[in-house]
Design a protein around this nucleic acid. Structure first.
Lengths: 133, 133
DNA sequence: CCTTGACCTTCCAGCGGCTGGAAGCCTCAT
DNA sequence: ATGAGGCTTCCAGCCGCTGGAAGGTCAAGG
């Protein structure tokens, strides 16, 4: 399996797959011509990585997940802990974004948005705290 | 005003302030000794930038906001449009994160998390789609 | 057999927004 | 005079790719 094929199969760009090899996430064989030669297992790994990344796990977390995946003696508790930690971070990020959102909503609502220069948004940014919180 | 002082006043690290000068967001004067010499206006600008950044605006958006702030003939509509656009992106990001969150919650809930190896989280990542959506 | 075009290879640079560290100058108090 | 703490510049690195240049390889068509 050439890189293009496995790229199509996994949905990952070829560049990304090469990068994953660079950082040691996959180790495809090489053909006589120097081309990478991916096994089905390699393709499967890449799909696993793609899915893990799409769930927002960092590369290092993906590396850990992959090693857990390949370890038949793993404890599911380890996987769960990793995922739970990630979940917490996401929840926290959502909270932060929602705080931003409500601040911005207030500001945007207050700004009349016409051709005159006075603007509560700029006033807030400048520290004349219309709301700040 | 030296950089340390304006750093304390604005809450921005000195490194960040130097970086902002590098990219042309502020242009502090220089003393005879080569030290940056910040005016009150410079300090005010930096506070403005800090607040804008903390609301999640990109550096380029901050640059635009700053130029609008300094333009007495601005139309508040321009500011509002920029903020509204930013707000949309944040709302979209929140939606994405919430989708992630609910997927992860389901997975984490399903995993018993003990010392046995079988794990619905890994099953999902591997594509044996327990839920996927 | 030659060309074309699609594929593959490596390597280097850049994105955003800082941040850390090295090496060296300046300033002020003791 | 010395030492601590500030200031300066410059270069490198973070993350996770992504783009592009320069060149090798392969299969099909003329």
């Amino acid at each position: 399996m050439n890189i293009g094929e496995v790229s199509r199969a996994s949905g990952l760009p070829a560049k990304t797959i090469r990068y994953y090899e660079d950082i040691g996430l996959v180790r495809p064989a090489r053909g006589a011509n120097g081309y990478r030669d991916f096994s089905d297992q390699d393709a499967h790994k890449l799909a696993f990585l793609g899915r893990s990344r799409s769930l927002g796990f960092s590369i290092e977390e993906c590396r850990t997940l992959l090693s857990l995946y390949e370890d038949r003696d793993r404890a599911s508790a380890d996987v769960k802990a990793l995922a739970a930690e990630h979940l917490d971070r996401i929840a926290q990020k959502i909270d932060e974004l929602q705080a931003l959102k409500s601040t911005l909503e207030t500001l945007v609502t207050r700004c009349h948005g016409d051709d005159r220069p006075d603007c509560p948004i700029l006033d807030d940014l400048a520290g004349r705290d219309a709301l700040t919180a």
